[in-house]
Design a binder for these strands. Sequence first.
DNA 1: CTGTTAGCGCCTTCAA
DNA 2: TTGAAGGCGCTAACAG
Lengths: 343, 343
Amino acid sequence: MVGAGGIVEVAALAGVSPATVSRALRGLPGVSASTRAAVRVAAEQLGYVASASASALARGRTSAVGVLAPWISRWFFAAVIEGAQELITSHGYDMLLYPLGANAGPDAGPVDARALHKRVDGVLGLNVPASMPTDSLRDLRVPLVTVGSTVPGLSGVQVDDVRIGLEATRHLLGLGHSRIGFLGLDPDDLYGFTVAADRHRGYVQALEQAGIEPDPRLTEVTGWAVQGGEAGLGHQLELAAAAGRTLPTAFVAVSDEVAMGALYAARCRGIRVPQDLSVIGVDDHDLSYLFDLTTVSQPVRRQGRLAAELLLEQMEGGAAARPRVVQIDPGLVVRSTTGPPRD
Amino acid sequence: MVGAGGIVEVAALAGVSPATVSRALRGLPGVSASTRAAVRVAAEQLGYVASASASALARGRTSAVGVLAPWISRWFFAAVIEGAQELITSHGYDMLLYPLGANAGPDAGPVDARALHKRVDGVLGLNVPASMPTDSLRDLRVPLVTVGSTVPGLSGVQVDDVRIGLEATRHLLGLGHSRIGFLGLDPDDLYGFTVAADRHRGYVQALEQAGIEPDPRLTEVTGWAVQGGEAGLGHQLELAAAAGRTLPTAFVAVSDEVAMGALYAARCRGIRVPQDLSVIGVDDHDLSYLFDLTTVSQPVRRQGRLAAELLLEQMEGGAAARPRVVQIDPGLVVRSTTGPPRD
DNA sequence: CTGTTAGCGCCTTCAA
DNA sequence: TTGAAGGCGCTAACAG
């Protein structure tokens, strides 16, 4: 039916008061079975659904969660959101999408935490810049659960990015590589999150533990896009040529996308993988297997789901729910872009 | 500051009435410059932001738009959403994300149009099933703009999918192919949209126009995922082997993702592209160039932006805004997964 | 230009 | 188990 009517129409049709309609439809106790049934019939007949705004205003809760994400066309973020979605919606929350950083348009400032807390009951923050918390986190009066970055005292799903860098590099070391480059520093940490820097730190640690002095010239700033990986490898080739040395025998890429770009650049130049060059990525992107890409995996959709769980816990558990940080272990998916070095 | 106060606190601090605060902050005319400034100062000092729920209730508009999408981790949808996002948010609308179909969870029914119209001022429908309009579109009392499918009488951004299939097939015909397969029928049109069927129709038309009898055995049901393309090509190989004939010399894939899967399957079996097999996709996916994939492009982000424009037009133009359908022309991006047939 | 007066539609006491 | 009354925070119409 039309669905324009309000609670009073339903009440009239069912022959009860609006208060009873409200109780009946929300499944609150203290309504006789027969009354409840009558109300349901009336509501159904009128196509009645409570107005979210009115309900939110009266209850002081919005039944919505906000998702802060820097991009959504980057697979990682889309997959996390998708992972969170089912749980969020099945608990009756709507999902509001807020762009952050790059994707937010030219002059969009940092997210207005004050506006957010009146709009949503909780926030899922994907790679929220490390700088944001200090600025405006205290203004955010609703639970915030982070993914991909951590804020002390808050719930979050975390992978140890240092360890990711470590594992990736160790895999290459284990194959016998010793000249290993890193593709993926974030351009002046543009969005203020430290994922790239942490993975790089793991890379450095692994080398040092193996008694290898990290060579800063082998690290490229690429950002997160495919093109960055492509350009990064290109630049390394130029550097090597100019210095009269050879390319490193292996690269750790900060993400699968960057790795894909590097593989492309290598292929264009006739560099064989893994004979001449090994490349390992991070994420286990849906498309990575197409490249036979070896990668450090993180269960991305599960991170989204877990984050949703933590958020629901905070929103519904109230103060009783202590903040929890869930650590997710990275895995290693060995395919065939990595192998022993030729020399 | 804290940001918990309401409009009355601001009014008190500024020494005016709540109504004036409302007018001043929203930039309505009829407020003296000095008053407006004073109100702004007070609001800033208190960290005041109007409650969206209260405002929505009072005005009868929610300042939100809903986005209906079957997946978001499929690049096409994420890119459309991203394309729409900036315009939507810069006009002061929040974006609500509603999963549809596959992604909505096991038992999620069709979107409840009645619930939607009280929650949002407009809806962006990405590939809304052809069946949905009939069912519940009349209950949706707010403007709906479609992308990827059209509903008579509504605004929408459209690419001619028949033409896409036609162009893709013609490209292959032009190269001299005559045995051309199609990878990409939707499993029993699972989500009820006709994109795949339309592209297939274009494929059939192109063949017929070239005087070639389409062979139904060369069409595979793959769905939209990479894996579908991979399996589809595999199945074609089996069929060919069983029938003692050779594989078609070329395939049209319904999407770049499906094409990627097919390329992978070919590579695994040592089938050379494009010498032994040509493959053309659709979309011009961000990653397609990595595969040197020839594809029929559609400007995806621009479709999102256009859809946002149409929607804003409908929402803000009111009845004055006639529904418009914007046709987007597909392009052809020739890379190197297509070439002349060997025989 | 500004204040006062009523709601917007629902939910939540409190009383019956 | 149900109804009546009031208020959530803001905005719109009408006065002044």
